[in-house]
Design a protein around this nucleic acid. Structure first.
Length: 739
DNA sequence: TCCTCATAACTTTTT
DNA sequence: GTTATGAGGA
C-alpha cells in the first residue's frame, strides 16, 4: 500500500481532490464548516508522507498565530516529529524572521524594533510637527490609515505623492515622507513595513530570492480572502516559477477590507495563474440546516458575490431564536438565563456557549451580568495584556536595551518613574542631538561622559536635569552590557530594580497589586524564552510579543462561556452562539453605512457570526441601548429582516424577566425625552422583534415581515396556546405595544 | 518638574 | 463611561 494513502480516508470527493492536487497553482473555495483545516493539514501530510516531500520545503501561512499553532498541532498528529521542520506561521511572523536574517542587505539592522499602532501614532505626530501641520485639523489617526493603505499597496511616500487624488492624501504623503525618515532613525518598522520590506528584499536581492524560492517548493496560504496586495505579492515571490501555490479562502468571509485586505486577490490569482485549478468545498459539517439556511439567505442579499451551493447532511435542527430585550442589561441577563437553562435541561456545557458582538464596548454589560450571576466567562480581546501600561513600560525598557536608537520607547520610559527630566529638558536635548547629527541616546551618553570627566555639560540644561540624564544613560548602558549574557528573566528583574519601575508600580496609587500581578505574569511568559541564547532570546521575545494577538492566547475550557467580537470569532465554532446587538448602527455599524461595499462587509461579518454556530443560534437585540454615556431607542437590524421568518422563533415569554414597571415607565407612546432623533428613518410599520397586541389573539412577537401587493404580511408568534399566525397588516386589529 | 483636576472627545473591527 | 489632553498649583 502506498504510504500516506490513509490520509484520504473519510474525505469527500472535493476534499480528496484538493488533497491530491499537489502540483501547480490551486484555488480552494471553502465555505464555512467545510473541513478546510482538515484539507490543509491532510494536504501537507500527504505531501510529506505520500509524495516524499521534505517538510523543510513546505511553508504554510496563516492569518493568526492561533491558527498557525492549531495547524502545527494537527500536523504533529499526522506526521509526528517531522512537523517541526515545516514552516508554519503568519505572514507578519515570517517576514519578521526573514528581515532579521536577511534585512541587512536592504539596509535594515537585525535589531530593529517593531512599532505597534500607538508607537506609530506618536511617530506620526512628530512627523506632523516636522511637516508643520496642525494635529487639530488633520487627525493623525486618519493620516496613519492613509499611510498604512499606501504601504499595503507597496507604495512609499513618493508613490503616494504621485498618486494622491485628494488634498488629504497629499498632506498625508508629506507626513509620510517624514514618518519614513523617523522610522529609519529609530531603526524601527511598523506592521506594514514588515510585509513591504520583505517584498522589497525578495524583489531587489536576487540571491536571497533564489535561495528562498528553491528552499520552499510548496506554499499554502490560508484565509486568502483576507490577504492584502503586499501579502499576495509576497506569496507570489515565494512561489516563484514553480508555482506550487495553494490558496484557500471564502470571499463571503472577507471581513478585513478596512485593513486593506482585498478580495480581488482571488480574481488576480486566477488571472496571474490561468492554469490554476479551482475546487469548491460546499458540504457543511458544522451547522444545522436551519442555521445554514439562515446564513445563506442573509449572504445572498450581497450583490457582488460568487454563488455557492452550500449544503449539509445534518438535520434541520431547532429554529433560530430571536429576542428583543429592553436594554443591554436585560439582553445580557437573557443570554445568561438561557445558558443556565441549556446547561440544566440540555446537557450543554458553559464552554459550548459563545456570545458575539460587534464592538468591544459591548462586553461590559455582559461581563457585569456574569459577575453578578457568578457565571464564569473568558473574555477574548478587550484591553490587551501587552497594551497595559505597566507591561508596556517594561517592554519599552526592553526594546530600548535591544535597540538604543528607538526614541519612541526612550521617550516613553524617560519619566517612568519620574526622575526629574521633563519635557523642556528633553526638547533641549533633542535639538542638540539633531544639531550634532547623533541619536538621542548617544547625546545622553555624551553628557554622562562629560560629567564623569569633569567637563562642562555641552547642552544648556539645569544641573539637576543634566545629572539625571547622565545617571539614566549610565544605568541603561549597564543594562545593555548585562543583556548580552543574562537570562531574560534575570534581565527583567534587573530592569525592574535598576530603573525603579518595581517601586514605582508597587507604591503607586493606581491598583498597585493588580499591576504588579501583570508584571509577574509577563515574567512568567518571558521565562519560556530562557532556553535560547540570551541575546537572541531578547530578540525573539520582543518579536513574538509584537506580533501576537489576544485571540492567540484563547484556550478552551469547559466551565467558562466565551465573550468575543465577531471579528475574532472567525475560524472558531461553538455548539451554542448568541449574537447580541442586532441593531442598526451597531450591526451594521454606523461607520459602515455610507457605502454599499461597507454594508456588504457588515453583512459578511454577521454571516461569519451565524456560521460559527453548530446547534443553537440566538439573535438578540436591545430596545434601548446606552452609547457614550447617554441612552436612546434603537432600530432593529436589517439583517434580521433578511433571514426568512420560518427559520425564526420568538423566545419564550418568561425569559423576559424585567419587572413590568421598568417597561411601562418608559411609556407606550410617550415622547422619548432623552432620546436623540433616530439616525435612520424608522419603518412606519412593524419590524421583526416588535411586540404587538391582537384584539383576540393577545400578545405576540413579530417574527417575519414581507411586503406584498400594496400591503404587508406579518408573521406573529403568539402565546403557545395560540401559536403562529400570518396576518395582513391592513386588516388585522393589531396594536404595537411599545417603541 | 510633577501632579491634580477639569473637560473634551471619542469607540469598529487587528496582524 | 472611558481615556487623552491641558491648565494651574505645589
Amino acid at each position: 500500500m502506498t504510504p500516506g494513502v490513509e490520509l484520504l480516508e473519510g474525505l469527500n470527493p472535493a476534499q480528496k481532490e484538493a488533497v491530491e492536487t499537489i502540483d501547480g497553482p490551486l484555488l480552494i473555495i471553502a465555505g464555512p464548516g467545510s473541513g478546510k483545516t482538515r484539507v490543509i493539514t491532510h494536504r501537507i501530510a500527504y505531501l510529506v508522507r505520500a509524495c516524499g516531500v521534505s517538510p523543510r520545503r513546505i511553508i504554510a501561512v496563516t492569518f493568526t498565530n492561533k491558527a498557525a499553532r492549531e495547524m502545527r498541532d494537527r500536523l504533529q498528529q499526522l506526521v509526528g516529529a517531522q512537523a517541526d521542520a515545516l514552516t508554519v506561521g503568519t505572514f507578519h511572523a515570517f517576514c519578521a524572521l526573514l528581515l532579521r536574517r536577511e534585512g541587512e542587505s536592504i539596509g535594515l539592522p537585525a535589531n530593529y524594533s517593531i512599532y505597534d499602532a500607538d508607537d506609530q501614532l506618536s511617530l506620526i505626530k512628530q512627523a506632523m510637527e516636522l511637516a508643520e501641520l496642525e494635529p487639530k485639523r488633520n487627525p493623525p489617526q486618519a493620516i496613519r490609515s492613509v499611510i498604512s493603505k499606501a504601504k499595503s499597496l507597496l507604495m512609499d511616500s513618493r508613490g503616494l505623492a504621485q498618486r494622491a487624488e485628494t488634498y488629504f492624501e497629499e498632506i498625508s504623503a508629506r507626513v509620510f515622507h517624514h514618518y519614513e525618515e523617523l522610522l529609519a532613525r529609530n531603526n524601527a518598522v511598523d506592521f506594514d513595513d514588515l510585509l513591504m520590506k520583505a517584498v522589497l528584499l525578495l524583489q531587489e536581492v536576487s540571491e536571497v530570492r533564489e535561495r528562498y524560492q528553491s528552499r520552499y517548493q510548496y506554499l499554502m496560504v490560508d484565509e486568502f480572502q483576507d490577504t492584502n496586495v503586499a501579502q499576495y505579492r509576497l506569496a507570489r515571490l515565494l512561489a516563484g516559477d514553480q508555482a506550487n501555490i495553494c490558496v484557500v479562502g471564502d470571499p463571503d468571509q472577507s471581513i478585513y477590507s478596512w485593513r486593506s485586505a482585498d478580495i480581488r486577490n482571488i480574481l488576480s490569482f486566477q488571472q496571474d495563474y490561468p492554469q490554476a485549478k479551482t475546487i469548491s468545498l460546499e458540504q457543511n459539517y458544522r451547522s444545522t440546516g436551519a442555521i445554514l439556511e439562515a446564513a445563506q439567505n442573509l449572504i445572498s442579499v450581497n450583490g457582488m458575490r460568487l454563488q455557492k451551493g452550500l449544503f449539509t447532511d445534518n438535520g434541520q435542527g431547532a429554529p433560530l431564536v430571536v429576542h428583543e430585550a429592553y436594554d443591554q442589561e436585560e439582553e445580557a441577563s437573557f443570554v445568561l438565563g438561557e445558558i443556565d437553562r441549556l446547561v440544566r435541561e440540555e446537557s450543554v456545557k458553559p464552554g459550548d456557549c459563545a456570545v458575539m458582538y460587534r464592538v468591544n464596548a459591548q462586553s461590559r454589560a455582559l461581563e457585569e451580568a456574569c459577575l453578578h450571576r457568578g457565571t464564569k466567562y473568558r473574555l477574548v480581546g478587550g484591553v490587551r495584556f501587552y497594551q497595559r501600561r505597566e507591561v508596556k513600560d517594561l517592554l519599552a525598557y526592553l526594546h530600548l536595551l535591544h535597540n538604543p536608537a528607538d526614541e519612541v520607547n526612550l521617550s516613553r520610559v524617560i519619566s517612568v518613574p519620574p526622575r526629574g527630566i521633563g519635557a523642556k529638558s528633553m526638547q533641549a536635548l533633542a535639538r542638540w542631538a539633531l544639531d550634532q547629527q547623533i541619536p538621542l541616546f548617544t547625546a545622553m551618553q555624551r553628557i554622562a561622559a562629560c560629567r564623569s570627566a569633569g567637563e562642562p555639560c555641552p547642552v544648556a540644561l539645569p544641573s539637576r536635569a543634566a545629572k539625571a540624564v547622565a545617571d539614566f544613560a549610565t544605568m541603561v548602558d549597564e543594562l545593555i552590557a548585562s543583556s548580552a549574557n543574562t537570562r531574560i528573566v534575570d534581565l527583567i528583574d534587573q530592569v525592574l530594580e535598576a530603573t525603579g519601575l518595581r517601586r514605582h508600580i508597587q507604591s503607586g496609587e493606581d491598583r498597585p497589586d493588580e499591576r504588579w500581578e501583570n508584571i509577574l505574569e509577563f515574567r512568567e511568559i518571558a521565562q519560556e524564552y530562557n532556553a535560547e541564547e540570551p541575546a537572541d532570546g531578547l530578540a525573539t521575545l520582543l518579536e513574538r510579543i509584537s506580533l501576537v494577538a489576544d485571540v492567540d492566547s484563547y484556550e478552551e475550557s469547559e466551565e467558562s462561556i466565551t465573550l468575543i467580537t465577531l471579528h475574532q470569532a472567525k475560524g472558531l465554532e461553538f455548539p451554542v452562539v448568541f449574537i447580541v446587538g442586532l441593531e442598526e448602527g451597531l450591526l451594521p455599524h454606523s461607520r459602515s453605512m455610507e457605502s454599499e461595499e461597507q454594508l456588504e462587509e457588515e453583512r459578511r461579518l454577521c454571516y461569519v457570526g451565524i456560521t460559527r454556530a453548530q446547534h443553537h443560534l440566538y439573535l438578540l437585540r436591545a430596545f434601548r441601548r446606552g452609547f457614550m454615556g447617554s441612552t436612546g431607542p434603537t432600530v432593529s437590524s436589517r439583517f434580521l429582516r433578511e433571514i426568512p421568518g420560518h427559520l425564526l422563533t420568538a423566545a419564550k415569554r418568561e425569559q423576559s424577566v424585567k419587572p413590568a414597571s421598568k417597561r411601562s415607565s418608559f411609556g407606550a407612546r410617550g415622547p422619548a425625552i432623552d432620546a436623540p432623533p433616530a439616525p435612520m428613518p424608522v419603518r412606519p410599520t412593524l419590524e421583526i422583534g416588535d411586540l404587538v397586541r391582537h384584539s383576540s389573539f393577545g400578545e405576540g412577537v413579530v417574527t417575519d415581515f414581507v411586503a406584498s401587493a400594496g400591503d404587508h404580511e406579518v408573521t406573529i408568534q403568539f402565546r403557545e396556546d395560540v401559536g403562529v399566525k400570518r396576518l395582513l397588516l391592513s386588516f388585522a386589529p393589531l396594536e404595537k405595544i411599545e417603541g
